[in-house]
C-alpha cells in the first residue's frame, strides 16, 4: 500500500466492513434488492454503480466550490442522471438482454440514496482524489452485498451461477438432484432478498458486537 496513505486506504476499506453502506448506513437498498435474483444482474448492477459513484464523486468534488448551496440537490441530480444515461445507453448497446432484465432499475440508480448520501457527506467537503477513493470504496461495499445476495439467491433458488448449472440438471436428475435435492423456489421471489439481507446483518452484527443497536 505504498500508493495510499493509511487514511486513504481506510476510505476504501471501511465501507467494505464496519461502515458498509447497505448493512450499517442503510443507504441504497432501494434499487438493489429487486435485481439480485441472478448473480449476473447483481454483478452488472454493482459495476454500474461503481462507475457512477467513482466519476460522480470526482465531478461533484471538482465543482463543489462553485455550486450555490440552495440548488445543490438539483445539480447533483443532473450529474448523476447524465452518468446513468451513459450507463443505460452502453448497456442497451452491448448487453441488450441484460438491460431488459434490469429494466427500470438502472434508471433508479439516480435516486439511489447511497450516491446522494456520499455526495452530501463526502464529495462536497473533500478534494477529488479522496472523493474518488470514497466513491470507489462505498460502491465496492455496496457491490459486495449485492453479489453475496445474488450468489445465494441464484444458487439456492435455481441451482445455477451465472446461468451455469453448478448443482446438476434438475430435469435429468444429475449431480445433487440425483440424491433428492430440490431447488428452493422461495429464493426467487422478491421478499427472499430482504430476508437474505436480514441474515447478512445478523451474521455481521454477531461477529462485531459493537454494531448492535440499542433497542
Amino acid at each position: 500500500m505504498a500508493l495510499l496513505s493509511k487514511k486513504d486506504a481506510n476510505l476504501i476499506k471501511d465501507p467494505l466492513g464496519d461502515n458498509n453502506p447497505i448493512t450499517i448506513q442503510v443507504l441504497g437498498i432501494c434499487s438493489a434488492l429487486a435485481i439480485t435474483a441472478e448473480l449476473k444482474a447483481s454483478v452488472v448492477m454493482a459495476i454500474s454503480v461503481l462507475f457512477v459513484m467513482g466519476v460522480g464523486n470526482v465531478v461533484i468534488s471538482l465543482i463543489r466550490n462553485i455550486i450555490p448551496s440552495k440548488i445543490r440537490i438539483i445539480v447533483q441530480l443532473v450529474v448523476v442522471a447524465a452518468l446513468v444515461i451513459i450507463v443505460d445507453q452502453v448497456l442497451k448497446a452491448f448487453a441488450y438482454d441484460l438491460s431488459k432484465t434490469l429494466s427500470v432499475f438502472i434508471g433508479l440508480i439516480i435516486t439511489n440514496c447511497i450516491i446522494m448520501g456520499r455526495f452530501e457527506a463526502f464529495a462536497l467537503g473533500n478534494g477529488p482524489r479522496r472523493a474518488f477513493l470514497d466513491g470507489i470504496g462505498n460502491a465496492l461495499g455496496y457491490g459486495v452485498i449485492l453479489v453475496i445476495v445474488g450468489f445465494f439467491r441464484e444458487l439456492l433458488g435455481s441451482g445455477t451461477l451465472f446461468g451455469i448449472k453448478v448443482l446438476g440438471d434438475p430435469i435429468a436428475k444429475t449431480g445433487l438432484y440425483a440424491i433428492g435435492y430440490e431447488n428452493n423456489g422461495f429464493m426467487i421471489i422478491p421478499p427472499a432478498a430482504l430476508i437474505v439481507v436480514g441474515i447478512i446483518i445478523w451474521v455481521q452484527r454477531s461477529r462485531n458486537r459493537a454494531l448492535i443497536e440499542e433497542a
Binding site: T23, V26, L194, I195, V197, G198, I199, I201, W202, V203, Q204, R205, S206, R209, I212, E213, E214, A215
Partner: peptide, 10 residues
C-alpha cells in the same frame, strides 16, 4: 444482533 435494522428487514 438482529435488533433494529435486521429484524425490520426480515
Amino acid at each position: 444482533p438482529l435488533r433494529g435494522l435486521g429484524i425490520t428487514f426480515i
